[in-house]
Structures are given as structure tokens and as C-alpha cells.
């Protein structure tokens, strides 16, 4: 068991890494660099998940966010060339900062005032998970089976929708369709 002080140091280093790279996403001017910092943020959040003993979720985070959604973002940047240099601020830049700070202040105040251990009357206890992936599998195919099936339908619609949006006005696509009709 790693002692309390080591855990503290690891927690603070990972969370500060995450937050600094998250702020850099907003402050960096080049869109590619901001994407790079976004990937670093995802990796940092995966580290926090591991500290919370959620290993499968951390891997899923790495795989889906850092591995595939970032690729999607990269390709989207490459398909829209003028955006690549330009990660400019909108006219709501200062209001954005203000709203962010106010929201953060309010929520932090709420969290620190609110006594979570009085929520249920029992003192909060830590749960150390063991072999999460098997339990998640049992839950997914047992209790949450309908959501599991619906997820596939959601993914299907996302695929169909995105394909039809991207290809909607491509000339070669239409030509190929026309040729197909003639046959």
C-alpha cells in the first residue's frame, strides 16, 4: 500500500499536469498545439482515473479520447485548411473567462460547504475495486442490457449520419450514384 504522502504527491502532480495542459488548450494560438495539449489533458485524466482505481475506464479513456477522437479532430483540422493557424479568440473571450471563473468559484464553494459525509449518514468509505472489467461485463450484459443494445444503435446512426453529411455534396459521389442507376 502506497503511503498517504506518496499518494498525495502523485495526485497533485497529475492533477496540476492535467489542469495546466487544459488551460493551454484555451490559451495557445495554434490549433494543432492546442490539440496536442488536449491529448495531454486526456492522458492526465486517465492518470486520475487510475488513482481512483478505475483501470478499465482509464484504458477506455486513452483508447477512445486520446487514440480516436483526437484523430478525428486532427483530420477535421486538416480538412478545413484555413483553421489550422487560427485558434483565435471570439468577442466573448473576456466573458468566457468571467463565466468560467464564476462557475468554478460557485461550484468549489458548494463542494467545500456541502458535507458529503452527511449525505447518507454513514462516513464515506473508500472502495478499492478488483478485476473491474469482469464486473463491468456482467453489469453491461445483465442490468444495463438495453442501454448496451441502444449504444450500438447510437453508433450506427452516428456512422450513417456522418457519412451522409460528409458525402452529401461530393460530385464524384453523385456521379458514381448516377452511373449505378444507369446500370
Amino acid at each position: 500500500m502506497i503511503e498517504f504522502s506518496t499518494y498525495n504527491v502523485i495526485f497533485f502532480s497529475i492533477s496540476s499536469f492535467t489542469l495546466i495542459s487544459a488551460i493551454s488548450v484555451g490559451l495557445v494560438n495554434s490549433l494543432m498545439r492546442s490539440l496536442f495539449f488536449l491529448i495531454l489533458t486526456f492522458i492526465g485524466v486517465a492518470g486520475l482515473f487510475i488513482l481512483l482505481s478505475a483501470d478499465f475506464i482509464a484504458i477506455a479513456q486513452l483508447l477512445i479520447y486520446a487514440g480516436s477522437i483526437s484523430i478525428l479532430l486532427l483530420f477535421a483540422v486538416m480538412l478545413t485548411p484555413e483553421s489550422s493557424t487560427n485558434n483565435g479568440n471570439s468577442k466573448y473571450f473576456l466573458p468566457g473567462i468571467l463565466i468560467g471563473i464564476i462557475f468554478t468559484y460557485l461550484m468549489v464553494a458548494l463542494v467545500t460547504i456541502f458535507q458529503f459525509n452527511q449525505l447518507s449518514g454513514i462516513h464515506l468509505k473508500k472502495l478499492d475495486f478488483d478485476n473491474t472489467i469482469a464486473s463491468i461485463g456482467e453489469l453491461l450484459l445483465g442490468k444495463y442490457i438495453i442501454a448496451f443494445e441502444l449504444a450500438s444503435i447510437l453508433l450506427l446512426f452516428a456512422l450513417i449520419g456522418a457519412i451522409s453529411i460528409v458525402r452529401s455534396n461530393e460530385s464524384d459521389f453523385l456521379i458514381s450514384l448516377n452511373n449505378k442507376d444507369k446500370k
Binding site: L63, I64, L72, I133, G137
Partner: peptide
Amino acid sequence: AKYFLYALGFVIFDVEVIFLFP
């Protein structure tokens, strides 16, 4: 846009993998 379409298919199948491994 073909590059984007491949990335799209990849994302969908990656999420599927997350469901299938458990």
C-alpha cells in the same frame, strides 16, 4: 474527405471494442 471517413469508421469500431472486451 476520404481520410475523415476512415477516421470515422475507426472511432465507431473503437467504441465497439470497449463494449466487446468486457
